[in-house]
């Protein structure tokens, strides 16, 4: 969907300061570009629940973080995001890789796609699916809208492989 430079540029354009992340095979390809940027800080965490909590602290401290994880990590991290976004009302923004969405034959029997959108709905997260190149500008647009309204939000990025 995005190449690394394009993705980093999108984040810089909207004013992101920190990316809190666990990689997958798509998101990980963007790491070198994120690490090379002078204006973005990549914070790697060991498990996705940590990502929402670190982002919460960053936000409270005045930074502008995004959480960058795969949808399977979203499943793992539910309670941490519930606490930060719903208990405390923090307008955190997540960019979630949608595993195998564009190539569902790559992992036969994988159930990640079945549960991703229902779980985002269950957590009452305002989600923008980006599944075609034409929708790429919606990442920045959705981020800005969420920031303006003080709401949490998710950009769900279709991935082509596991």
């Amino acid at each position: 969907m995005y190449n690394a430079d394009e993705f980093v540029q999108e984040l810089l354009t909207v004013g992101v300061s920190h990316i809190v992340s666990v990689p997958d095979s798509t998101l990980g390809e963007w790491y070198p570009a994120m690490q090379q940027s002078d204006e973005l800080s990549l914070i790697q965490v060991c498990r996705e629940g940590e990502a929402w909590a670190v982002a919460a602290g960053l936000h409270v401290g005045g930074a502008s973080p995004v959480v960058l994880i795969q949808c399977t990590g979203l499943f793992e991290s539910g309670d941490a995001l519930r606490n930060a976004i719903h208990d405390y009302g923090l307008p955190l923004f997540g960019i979630i890789g949608y595993r195998s969405y564009l190539n569902q034959s790559s992992l036969p029997g994988d159930t990640a796609r079945i549960f991703t959108e229902p779980i985002l709905d269950a957590w009452q997260l305002n989600t923008q699916l980006i599944d075609t190149p034409e929708k790429k500008p919606l990442l920045a647009e959705h981020y800005r809208t969420c920031r303006t309204n003080g709401h949490a939000g998710i950009a769900l990025i279709a991935e082509g492989r596991a």
Binding site: A56, L58, H59, G61
Partner: peptide, 9 residues
């Protein structure tokens, strides 16, 4: 982890 985020910011 919240504390870590605050320490960074």
């Amino acid at each position: 982890s919240w504390g870590l985020g605050i320490a960074i910011a």
